[in-house]
Simulated scan of single mutants.
Amino acid sequence: MEDLAPGRREQNKQRTRRALEDAAARLFAEQGFAATTVRDIATAAGVGERTFFRYFPSKEDLVFQQVRDLVPGLMQGVRERPPGESPLAALRGAMLDWLDETGAPPTILVAGPQKGLGPRHEEAHALIGDLEDAVTGAFLDRLEAAGADRNDRAVLLRAAVQARAGVAVVRGMMLVLPGGDACKAHMPAVAPGPALSKAEIRQLLHDAFASLDP
């Protein structure tokens, strides 16, 4: 029994973390990112604020950490997609596979904040750059596996441009999500409402990638 205790503790930690992430996603959608407090998230998850801070230093860190945790598995998924797919099709397929495997989208895909990060804006910008670089690397791996020279300027350009287009798809999605902060200079923010279901997220992903077609 004692040998199982560490495993049970880890399972409990994972359940608590997932409860906090799920609560945050729901509240960000219903109330908006800026209006949601750490206390709101903790209460909705059935824990105290002190428990929240054992997992995340802030609500911003909850979102940032989910992105960091998502990247390695997602990039591996891109590399393992069928070889005949284009880089962007592989990214879309890997994201859909990830949704199917986990059963729920990460907070960043449910109501990810575009603004309202205050002094964390630069950190968010850097994280987007890291994601673009990671996707570029995965695309180069696919192109190299298909026989291209990853050091060729044209190959690198294709991977870099398409990687940034793929990341832009995700960022564009967040403009039309309930609770997301739209670019108010150009369009009104979508009113807070119920968080999207997995099926709705899947359809939104399809539609978002399809918007890249001529």
Rank of each mutant, 00 (worst) to 15 (best):
M1I: 11
M1G: 08
M1L: 12
Q11C: 06
Q14E: 12
R15K: 15
R18C: 06
E21G: 05
A24F: 10
A24E: 03
A25T: 08
G32E: 06
G32R: 00
A34D: 15
I41D: 11
A45I: 07
R54L: 11
F56W: 00
S58V: 02
K59D: 02
E60N: 14
L62G: 08
F64G: 13
D69T: 04
V71I: 11
Q76W: 05
P87F: 01
A89D: 09
A90S: 05
D100Q: 12
E101V: 11
E101W: 09
E101F: 06
P105A: 15
T107R: 09
V110N: 02
G118W: 08
E123H: 09
E123K: 11
A124V: 12
A126T: 15
L127I: 13
I128T: 13
L131H: 12
D133R: 10
G147Y: 00
A148Q: 07
D149P: 00
A154T: 03
V161R: 00
A163L: 03
A163V: 03
G166P: 09
M173E: 14
V176H: 09
L177C: 14
A185R: 11
M187S: 06
V190R: 11
I201T: 07
R202M: 00
L204A: 09
L204M: 10
D207N: 10
A208C: 02
S211V: 01
L212D: 10
P214D: 11
